[in-house]
Amino acid sequence: MASVYKINDDFYDDSFFLIALHSTLEDYAVAYRLNHVLKSNLKRAKTDFELTKNSSFPFYEWQDELNDRYWVLVANQSTKKELVANTNDLFQNESTYSTPRLIPELKEVDYFLKIEDDESIDCEEIIKLLLGMPRIMAAYEVDADKLKSKNNLIF
């Protein structure tokens, strides 16, 4: 008989800030511009974050050892498409695909910037810098405690 392990909410340290980004840029261009504006060093992870076998999310990470922070830029849209079965439809012989989202309740968001920090960080200042970047239409803080799919942000 197989063992089942569950993550206890007390075990997971949720002291992080989550910033939603709206942009038409590709993920590598957003990371490049964030590195320039925030003086960060985000680099593409060796493997994408796979939530399920049909969803893969590219992400960039940086361990800021000077300030003891961990930064993650992750796309909200999967690079893999999911085949959806059509039944009793006008186009039932056609393939239909859906794009899985990391945080489905915020499907309009393109990227999330997650900053893990034990101290208080000036999130307002970071958002102000992000809004000054070209081709970033919107940037705002998201209350992660109100998200249903908060556990998807565990990397």
Rank of each mutant, 00 (worst) to 15 (best):
L153E: 00
Y28A: 06
I127N: 00
N41Q: 11
N151H: 10
L102F: 03
Y140T: 02
A20H: 04
K150H: 01
F155E: 05
L51I: 04
I121A: 02
Y32R: 13
F17I: 09
L42Q: 06
L113V: 00
Q77M: 15
N151Q: 11
W62Y: 14
I7Q: 14
V74C: 10
K43F: 15
F57W: 07
L18C: 01
K6I: 03
T87K: 15
Q77A: 15
N151G: 10
S95D: 12
R135S: 14
T24D: 14
S55F: 03
N35Q: 06
E105T: 01
D13C: 07
K6H: 11
S56C: 04
F11D: 15
S78G: 06
E94M: 10
G132L: 05
N86R: 14
Y140K: 01
D143M: 01
E50L: 07
S78N: 03
T52K: 07
L51P: 01
L38T: 06
M133Y: 04
D9T: 07
T52H: 08
E61C: 15
Q63G: 11
S95N: 12
M137E: 14
A29D: 10
V4F: 06
L51Y: 08
L90C: 10
S23H: 05
R101W: 08
N41K: 10
K107F: 13
E124S: 01
E82L: 12
A20S: 07
L130R: 00
F112E: 00
L25Q: 08
E50M: 05
N8M: 11
T87E: 15
E94P: 09
N35C: 06
P58T: 11
Y60R: 12
N93V: 06
E82P: 09
M137V: 12
E94W: 11
D122I: 00
L113F: 05
Q92G: 09
M133W: 05
N151I: 07
S78C: 07
N76F: 09
I154T: 09
F59L: 14
E124F: 00
I136E: 00
L34T: 03
L90R: 13
F112M: 02
F17G: 12
D68S: 12
N76H: 10
K43G: 09
A45K: 15
K6W: 07
K6T: 08
T52Q: 10
E105D: 01
A85N: 14
L83C: 09
R44W: 10
K39D: 04
D48P: 05
S15E: 11
Y111P: 04
F57Y: 07
R135Q: 12
I136P: 04
D10I: 09
S56V: 02
K146R: 07
S3V: 06
T99C: 10
L106Y: 02
I7G: 13
E65C: 15
K114C: 05
M137A: 15
E105A: 03
P104D: 04
K128P: 05
L90K: 13
E26Y: 07
F11W: 15
S55M: 02
Y28G: 03
L18V: 02
M1P: 08
Y140E: 03
D27M: 09
T24I: 12
E125W: 01
L106H: 03
D89K: 12
F17H: 14
M1V: 08
I126E: 00
K150P: 02
H36W: 14
L38R: 03
I126H: 00
L130V: 00
K81P: 09
V37H: 08
N8K: 11
R44T: 11
E116C: 08
K150T: 02
